[in-house]
Amino acid sequence: MPGVARQPFGIPPMDKKNAKIQTARHILKKVLTSILTIYVIITISFLMVHFMPGDVIKHLIGTEDYYFLLENNPEELERVITKYGLNDPLHIQYLKYLKSIATMDFGVSYNNNQPVIYNVLKCCKWTLLISVPTLILGGVFGAVLGIIAGWHPGGKFDMIMTPISLFMNTVPSNCIGILMLVVFSYKLRIFPISGVTSGMLTGAEYVKDLMLHMALPLIIMVMFRTFSDFMTMKSSVSQVRREDYTTTAAAKGLPDRKVLFKHVMRNAMLPYITSMCMQMGGLLSGSMIVETIFGWKGMGQLYYQAVTNRDFPTAQLCFLISAVCVVLATLLSDIVIALIDPRIKEKVNA
């Protein structure tokens, strides 16, 4: 039918400038939402303390101390209450709370009378030392293995790796942790049993000692991360390779390698990148179980001890940090995906 008029149809395609503005607008929207979320989290963490059953002062100084002071030294109790500003009306307390967060004043730990922020920063260092390599190594290993298994689902590699990773994903990390401690530290004496360093060491000796101490927790963390990332990547790749555009790519005469890297991987990376970004939210939280088993003085252990010791300011800051990290990680994944996937920003603005 040669007489058909030229007519454009479908959604009118966007020009590049317009697309950039839409991306920027989408990202700005996400940033504002994140700021709002963080504000809500801060408010909730404030309200939670005040609406918990019982008196706040009881939570702060402990029930036993409270009754002890009430009976023996009411003036001292009154002094403590005034010190914490608990006589102020709620909105004044709230404003003071906001101000203290804005000025990074998170109070003093009940445990060692050091500023909380100081304790937390010290522990952050040790947690990052484990969590950053875990994120990177686990992410890379998981991706590579997942791609190989997902590209040939049901193949030999897949048949071996998938049961292993299912097993590893179901075994609790404390179980493997203790097992490895017994074998490598107690029986074979290759690695130290617990702690961060042996102390009194400098230079290369110090680094070597530190490496030996972090070896076991790091190996366990990387192992677990690898196997969970492996499952994510494998399912993503095996799903994408069944998509029509993979057939289209092969029908164009692209060799397997190019079909995989140009078409399958790009699409399979989308959920993987989201998962990676979300994992970044856990960078500062540390693994409570692994850190406790190996006596690694990181954030996980700090949080655990703060909760068991009723060290309220420390626990609150730990909670705040992990909440903010999760919000920021979500924001990061939103931004990264919006930059990679053209469908996202337009769907939002449609």
Partner: peptide
């Protein structure tokens, strides 16, 4: 030969083109 001598034109459904290119 695929795409050079003989071409397959898939159904133009939702996923026939790579959404990221």
């Amino acid at each position: 030969i695929r795409g050079a001598l003989i071409s397959y034109v898939p159904q133009g459904g939702g996923a026939s083109l790579n959404p990221l290119m």
